[in-house]
Each structure stands twice: as C-alpha cells, then as structure tokens.
C-alpha cells in the first residue's frame, strides 16, 4: 500500500511539475516577446512596450516595484533569470495576469518589513556606473518623490526644496538616503520636537532641520 501511495504522490508531483513547466514556458515566451533578439535582454524599448501593454507609465513606481520583485540589477534592463524570478513569484505568465498582479505587488511592497528593502533597492537600482556610490541631487529628488512622495508627502517636499537650494552637497550617498527614511519614520513633523542633532543623524539632515527651523521662525 505504501508503494501505491507513493506512486500517487509521484503522479501528483509529475502533474504539477508538468503544469509548472508549462507555466515556465509561457513566462519565457512572454520574455522573448519583449526581449531584444540581439542582446537577449528586455531593454528600455522592451520595457516601454511592456508598460504600454500593462497600461502603466514607465515612470510609475509600480515598474520600480516590479524590478524589485525581479531583483533586477541593471537599470532599464531585465534578463531572463530576473524575469523568471519575478513572474514566477507573482504567478503571472500572461500580460493580463501580470497586470492583475500589480495591486497585490504594491501591497506587498508597502508592508513595512519589505518597504525598507524596497527603499534601499531603489537607491542601488539607480547606481548605473561601476563603483558609483552616490546619486546626483536631481535624480535623488525624483526618486524620493517616486518612492516616498505618497507616504511622507510634506517631508519629501520640504527635503526636495532644501536639496535644490543648498550648495554643500552635489550628490547623496546610501547612508544619507537611508537616514532620510529613518527621519520620516521617527521624527515628529513638522514640529521636529524629537530631533537631536547630537545623535547619529547624517549631517545633511542636521542642516536640513536647521534650515526648516529657520524657515519656521
């Protein structure tokens, strides 16, 4: 009876593996429908086509979320492995399924435990050059608005204003980027009552707070 049972399990297994290999095939063929045949990658043009098929603007935060889900390493490009990783876990093997998966993806990203990871991923995703460690102010302002703008509207607006008028910094590094996220989560705004510049905040935030306070007075 054991052997019967085990063969039943095997049957089930092979059925499900057949189903999943079917799914994989569909995922792969979807990939090739967007990929550039010469490079074998979905390039910016391919991404733009994908965006128009799922009816999302290519600058929409959900595209960044999709990249996060795929663990995509190079800005503007998806390779086959990344595509498989992302679409498999979204259980999407067609354009319509992918489109339907987006609201759930957004919920997943917004979960606090994932959001920190997504936030730091967003920074890393924008590092396009070898050994690049920081991002220019202009791009940072756009990125902040994209990833934090809906959640911390006033903080992001104020910080973006500050970044644009200050002259001490031309670029922002990861430490400062993460520091601002911590600031949004921990500091009472706009009274800033619990901000203490003696603590380990990055200097740029000390300066930002000084600027805000000068403005408030």
């Amino acid at each position: 009876s054991t052997s019967v049972n085990s063969s039943a399990v095997d049957l089930f297994r092979s059925a499900s593996s057949r189903a999943s290999s079917k799914e994989l095939e569909r995922i792969d063929s979807l990939f090739y429908s967007y990929a550039n045949p010469s490079s074998g990658l979905i390039d910016p043009e391919g991404i733009e086509n994908l965006c128009s098929d799922i009816e999302v603007d290519h600058t929409d935060v959900r595209i960044l979320m999709l990249a996060w889900k795929m663990k995509s390493e190079k800005q503007g490009y998806f390779n086959l492995d990344e595509w498989r990783t992302g679409l498999k876990s979204l259980r999407a093997d067609t354009v319509s399924k992918l489109k339907k998966a987006l609201p759930d993806l957004e919920k997943e990203v917004r979960r606090p435990s994932n959001f920190v990871d997504f936030y730091s991923y967003a920074f890393r995703y924008c590092l396009t050059e070898e050994k690049q460690k920081s991002i220019d102010i202009e791009s940072i302002c756009e990125l902040l608005d994209l990833v934090l703008g809906s959640q911390f509207h006033s903080q992001v607006n104020a910080f973006v204003d500050y970044l644009k008028i200050q002259t001490d910094y031309k670029v922002i590094n990861m430490d400062q980027w993460m520091g601002f996220f911590r600031f949004c989560n921990e500091i009472s705004y706009p009274d800033l009552i619990n901000y203490d510049s003696e603590l380990a905040w990055p200097l740029i935030l000390d300066n930002f707070v000084e600027w805000l306070q000068a403005k408030q007075n």
């Binding site: 460690k133 590094n173 430490d175 510049s197 990055p202 200097l203 000390d206």
Partner: peptide, 14 residues
C-alpha cells in the same frame, strides 16, 4: 566642531 566630526565620520563611511 561637532559638525566636522560628523562630516568626517560620513566621509569614512563613504
């Protein structure tokens, strides 16, 4: 100056 120390720490992180 405290600010300079902070700046140096950040530079050393970088």
């Amino acid at each position: 100056d405290f600010k300079i120390i902070k700046k140096r720490i950040e530079d050393l992180i970088a």
